[in-house]
Write a protein that binds this DNA or RNA. Structure first.
Lengths: 251, 251
DNA sequence: GCATTATTGTGTCAATAAGACATTTTAACA
DNA sequence: TGTTAAAATGTCTTATTGACACAATAATGC
């Protein structure tokens, strides 16, 4: 048997007090938007287990931000993803869930996860990628109707949404979640799903226009026996500028 | 020689790819307020080295939040500290600074730091604590005039200030930074040092009163040949309530 | 005692933004 | 061509911010 660190660790577990061993991973809350609903990408790692967030380990020679980008690319096939670190989770015994299922002592060590949230175009994700190797199933689940998640992944999702909501006060959103062209009501639906509340249509319209990140197109979307809503697309330059400078903060 | 993990690790370094070994630490940006200036607590770990932030390792059976509390208590002697995790730093080679000074290979491994900022009453800190064991000097340095810091500690400080500034829109501040009784101009000075800009006196006064977290006392502070400013103290109940509920957010 | 003076506490006003709601415009369809 | 439902825009009220002015006040000097 090849003596990997894992073997060494299992044999010697309990003695290592000088250098605390911690199992670092990255967990990503991947958000997509489809048919007016905010969706989260969840995985089932093996038959019968609970659902989990896509995640992975950090390479020896890798920045954690780069690791998160790589993990998402491996899982979703998508590139140019909006990705933001929001918090690190390090409660003790947060891995108890899977500790019971795994006999290896190394699993009993501390787990620490750096949480990222990702905003991604629903249609650009390839759910079947990478399935053979680790994952059994990958699925989009409705934010408002999540299945039972393993470990503290539910808390990680809740926290991601809180941080994202707060982010709406500072940065524009939507470039990674909506198709290239969209209508104002569609954009409003996105905001409403993230904030989990209804917004006033007129006020929303004016607020968005004030941000000056939208370009109104000449085309309209045909939606039946009603006035056709105009199509918009993001003005990339202004959008980027808003991302860098941020919207006005109170102080 | 006792075979600790550190020895094992040094001997076998380079093979461990299955379980990525990461050196986790907690770094704290400890902020105090004294004579109208915002101060940061910095340490010199040994003669001739650069300055560093107080930090430490996470115990095997410890939540990271608890570890941060413990580390601060050990270093400062202070309790009831406001402490908030704000970001995790995991750039590769961020430890190169000290790698060169330390021959042990384990030091060359990845470093990952969970950043916390702490707000603490300047006068309650005992700087000489813990010095014999690890630290040579502990000192308060002016935020606007920081010495050269080791590794990426300067970036950690800058980021902490950014997150704290943003926090001012959501939570009150001052309970841990000011003495029990203080004047309105003193509170304003605190805000001005954090935000690094002058604020309008009248508007500041009214904004604070609107927050409804202050109790005006009957006493005044004698400050020479001027109108004596009233003393205030925080209304702890309302302050706590504001901490929990947060100030109004835009959406 | 009393005027002086620097600072606090409060008032005002304009500009901006948010919330609620009404009105107009528009495009598809009967 | 009129009907209809939704988009786009307008209006009004209220709250917030920033700038500035002025009155109240308390220690000090005369």
């Amino acid at each position: 048997m090849k003596e990997t660190l894992r073997n060494v660790f299992e044999k010697r577990s309990g003695e290592y007090t000088e250098l605390y061993l911690t199992h670092i991973s990255i967990d990503c809350v991947v958000l997509g938007f489809h048919e007016g609903l905010l969706k989260i990408l969840v995985l089932k790692l093996k038959e019968g287990s609970k659902w989990s967030l896509p995640g992975g380990y950090v390479g020896k020679e890798e920045d954690i931000d780069d690791a998160a980008i790589r993990i998402l690319r491996e899982r979703t096939g998508a590139d140019h993803i909006f990705l933001k670190q929001f918090r690190t989770f390090g409660k003790n015994h947060r891995n108890e869930d899977i500790f019971e299922e795994n006999s290896g002592l190394w699993m009993a060590q501390r787990f620490l996860s750096v949480g990222y949230y990702a905003l991604i175009d629903f249609h650009k994700v390839n759910l079947s990628l990478d399935l053979a190797e680790i994952t059994v199933i990958a699925e989009w689940k409705d934010v408002k109707n999540l299945p039972e998640m393993m470990m503290d992944h539910r808390e990680i999702i809740d926290q991601a949404l809180i941080y994202m909501r707060r982010g709406l006060n500072y940065y524009p959103i939507g470039l990674n979640l909506l198709p290239e062209r969209f209508t104002m009501p569609e954009l409003q639906q996105l905001y409403e799903s993230i904030l989990n509340k209804k917004l006033n249509r007129g006020n929303f319209y004016r607020k968005m226009m004030r941000y000056d990140i939208l370009t109104k197109l000449d085309e309209c979307r045909k939606i039946g026996a009603h006035k056709s809503p105009h199509l918009y697309r993001f003005n990339i330059d202004n959008y980027q500028k808003a991302m860098e400078e941020g919207f006005k903060e109170s102080w």
